[in-house]
Structures are given as structure tokens and as C-alpha cells.
Amino acid sequence: MIPVNTPLLDGNEKAYLAECIETGWISSEGPFVKRFEGEFAHAVGRQHAIACANGSGALDIAVAAAGIGPGDEVVMPTFTIISPAASVVRAGGTPVLVDCSSETWNMDVAQIERRITPATKAILVVHIYGLPVDMTGVLEIARRHNLVVIEDAAEMHGQYVHDRPCGSFGLISTFSFYPNKHVTCGEGGMVVTDDEVIAEKCRGYRNLCFQAKRRFVHEELGWNYRMTNMQAAVGLAQLEKLESHVIRKRQIGERYLNRLEGTPGIVLPPTEAEYAKSIFWVFGLLVEEGHPLSSGDVMKALGERKIGTRPFFYPMHQQPVFQKQGLFLNESYPVAETLSERGFYVPSGLGLTDSQIDEVADALKQIMASV
């Protein structure tokens, strides 16, 4: 079996975990948490980093710290994982959607301004798959309309927009450390900001809003979203190898591109924009419109060859859970719908070997030529 993701854990992970066990510091009180936070903040050019249990928790914290609540609208992409929209809805806010660009698969910045109303409080950016959002345009729109920018950089460890790292834009940015990310703790997340007041709010929301002088007296509701010392130990070891991980991911992407170029029925992923080159977090593909095989057919055929795949995100405006709440009724976003219907991604984890890449590419070419 070639899994859709194989993490690479060949640095100091074992040594740092052994230190946690030997010292007994396994909870969120351990020293690796602060070390990881400090090194991560430096890596993404932020003043403050707040480690937490997972990327979805980071979004919950960020949305709360930004003051999103009932009556507030948040402009965001429809083509994304559900977590950002879920955080807004749980806070009482209303997601207002924009379609994505067919050239980058990211939210179409040109559509943002027309979705702004007097109730708009924030723009929630989600960088998708390999290329980031054009943050220059987003920040200019936010400045003109006095809006908060929340940046979900979960998939963009080590990526840049021009010469600025993803995660350094807007009021708050968030990351995920799920196993398929360039930096993984197994599970984990991070909130980063340059605002000291916001950072302190985030620390409180992460830790049940305990108070320093009256621990069990609560003025606000928070979450138990703490990161353990063991997670942070693995994350720190991973962060030490981020540069080499980015290089390897781009090598994987380039090898796939070379092997699959010209394959009938397959559309290769976007590789660059004016402001960035793809980091190939995943290697996504589209089945050409009108091809006899659907993306589901191709994924099934690859699965029969013991090759893992995943479908593309399902758009927020089509999510049953949101439609049941009366959200996004009769809304249509054709680019996102096309990507979701025709898109999938193949194995592209850091542990993937060149021979496995070639095996996947050969299998895909055979499948597409079989009809």
C-alpha cells in the first residue's frame, strides 16, 4: 500500500520524546511547549505564538480573540475544509462566501469587495493545497474597509508570499500540525500574532480562561486546547527540518509533473503565481471535463492498485450541515463546484520515495488510457 501521506520523522523526534519521558514533563506544563512556541514565532516572523491541541482549535481561538460574534459577517472562501466556517458559525458569526480562482485554486481576491456589507467584520483567508492567496490584495481591501484579517496557513508551512512567510499576515494567523503537514506533531495547532493583547486572549481561550489570581473563577468561557510537552517536542524536531521538508515537497511535485505531463484526461495543478511558487502541500489533479472517467472512478481504480487518494474539499455552500441551518441557500460558486467534482490528490507525503512516485504516475497513466 502506498498511503496518501507518509510523515518523515528522521530528526530529533526520538531524542526529544525520550527527554520528556525521562524528566516526567509530559503535560502542557513542560518546557518544550515554550521552546516550540518561540522557535515557531521566529520562523513565521511573528512576535507571539500560542500552541494548542489542533488546527481547528487554533481557528476557534483566533475567531474568539478577533471578537467575532452574533451579527458579524466574515468573508471567506467556499472551497476549503469545514473548520474555518465551523469556527465562525459556532461563534455566532455568518460566513459570507466567495468563489475561488481557477488559476490558483485559492479564494478569488477580486470577488471579496463585492461581498462586504456594513455587517462585515473580518476576512478569513485560507491558503489551499500549494499556492497561497494573494495577500497584498487582501490586506489592501481590509485596510480600506477597516476589517480584521485572519489567516489560515494550516497548509503553508515554509511558504512565502513574495518575501513574507505565510502566517505573518493580518491580525492573527493559524497553523495545523496534522501528520500530512510539513511540520507535524501528530495532532496540534498554533495561533500567531504580533498583538500582545490578542496573544494574551489566545492564551486564556486555550486554557479554559483560568485567571492568574483566581484560577477557578471564570469571566469568560474558553476551551481545553492545550498542547502537551510531547507534542511540542515532536513539533520542535520537525521545525528544525522545515527547510529540507520544503525542498523535498517541491522535488515530489516536480517529479510528478514530469512523469504526468501530457497524460490524456488529466489536468495538472497550478505551479506558480506572480507572488509565489507552489509548495505542493498535496499533489492535486483534475479529471478533464467530458472524460469518460469521473474522479471517483480514477480514485477507485488507484485504490484497487493499493494507492491511496483523497477527494478535494467539498464547498461550504453545498455542505448539508450549513444548508440545514439556512445558510448559503441557492448560492452557486462554479469554480469551487468544478474543483470539488473533478479533483483529487495522490500520495505526496514527505516519506514518499521516488520509486513510489513513479509507481503512482504509471498507474494513473494506465488508468486514464484504459478508456
Rank of each mutant, 00 (worst) to 15 (best):
G189C: 01
K201V: 03
R203T: 03
F175I: 12
F216L: 12
C185D: 08
L208A: 09
D194H: 03
D195V: 01
I172W: 01
L208M: 13
S173M: 06
D194R: 06
E187N: 13
F177G: 09
E220A: 13
Y178R: 12
K181F: 10
E219S: 13
L221R: 14
F175E: 06
Y178A: 15
G186D: 03
L171Y: 02
R215Q: 13
F177H: 15
M190A: 13
R203I: 06
V191Y: 08
C202W: 01
V192K: 02
F216H: 14
E196S: 15
K213H: 14
Q211F: 05
V217P: 02
D195Y: 05
E219Y: 09
N180I: 06
K213R: 15
E187D: 14
F177E: 15
L171D: 08
C202T: 04
F210M: 13
R215P: 11
M190N: 09
K181A: 08
F210H: 15
V192P: 01
Y178P: 03
R215A: 11
T174H: 10
N180R: 08
E219D: 14
V217T: 13
A199W: 02
I172A: 08
G186Q: 00
G204I: 03
D194P: 08
E196Y: 04
E219C: 07
V191W: 04
F175D: 06
I198C: 10
G188S: 03
S173V: 09
E196A: 15
E220D: 11
E219I: 10
F210N: 02
V183E: 02
V197E: 15
I198G: 05
E200Y: 11
H182P: 09
N207C: 10
I172L: 04
D194S: 09
F210T: 10
L208K: 13
Y178G: 13
V183F: 00
R206Q: 08
K213Q: 13
V197Q: 15
A212K: 12
E220H: 14
G189L: 00
G204R: 00
N207V: 11
R215K: 14
R215N: 11
N180H: 15
K181T: 14
G188F: 00
C202V: 06
T184Q: 06
G189T: 00
D195E: 05
G222H: 01
F210Q: 10
A199T: 00
